[in-house]
Amino acid sequence: MRLEPINNPSFARKLVPPALALSATILIASLLAMVAGANPFSVLGLIIKGAFGSKFALLETLNRATPLIFTGLAVAVAFRAKFWNIGAEAQLYAGALITVLLGTGALAWPSGVILPVIALIAVFAGAVLLLVPALLKTRFGVDEVVTTLLFNFIFLLFISMLLEGPLKDPMGMGWPKSARLIPEASLPRIVDGLRLHWGFALAIISALCVWVIQTRSTLGYEMRAVGLNKQAAGFAGIPVNLVLVKTALLSGGLAALGGFSEVAGLKGSLTLDLSPGFGYTGIIVAMLALLNPLGVVIAALFVAGIFVGADSMSRAAGVPTYLADIMLAVALLLMVLAIMLTRFHVVRD
């Protein structure tokens, strides 16, 4: 078999493969639920109900989506330029680390000053953390996939070291946990009484900013050009390495902002379980969104919904929560296949 590009894909051609991918994902999840001895319809119903079925569930989903929007944006920006940042996990922790370093009493300023200052320094820290793999790539040709992946392990151990050492909360009953943020360094709730903080709004604003950068700025154009064809971009006079470094700074900064938002908005302190893999899940979010920054918001809500829904489904139906991770992995693989099939014929020879 071989692949032949379709010049003018019809509307059906654009719609049918992704729809089939989604249906197949649901089918596979149903089969797995049956393997676990549960009724697949009630399992899927419980997931949807647990994610969007009540005000509490919906707020929980929005909260869970917030860090995923940041990491999803970080990945989307980087992957667009074919810079494979798999290290959003570490960059998120870098932002969280800065937040507790500066927000637990080191700076005693009013909210309006301290929050933007911490956010900016957090962005800077995440950007610097990704700068190392970026420079290793542009200077030495070291593949960034492996370096960013390995950085995740190194940086988490570093955080663990700090939490058991200098950052350990003396009032923490021996747990490896940082001190709590001062009230001025905490992000307020958007509406009083509703458990949703300004980090969510910041995530939406970030998505809009990234969308503007990608579609309306020279940098966005250069990033796309580098991603499509490095050689051609170089011939056209685009400074490829510089664009890659700028991409990395933006990507690392976005992921770090997610760490800031998660600590300042939700958790209030830093622990080693701050992120249950938000950095890695960001890859799924970005791919499901086809690397579109506004799509990232929708994909993050969808992915967060599956996670939150699966948690409550698991408690009710006794099916392991890992069903959510399987669904997302299957959705990811089938979706990249489906997207390809909207643009290519498979020809037998």
């Binding site: 797995l32 799924i284 392991p320 991770d325 997302l328 992995a329 990811l332 693989l333």
Partner: peptide, 9 residues
């Protein structure tokens, strides 16, 4: 992701 999550499942 698929291999890890299906293994844990």
């Amino acid at each position: 992701l698929l291999a890890t999550s299906s293994t844990y499942y």
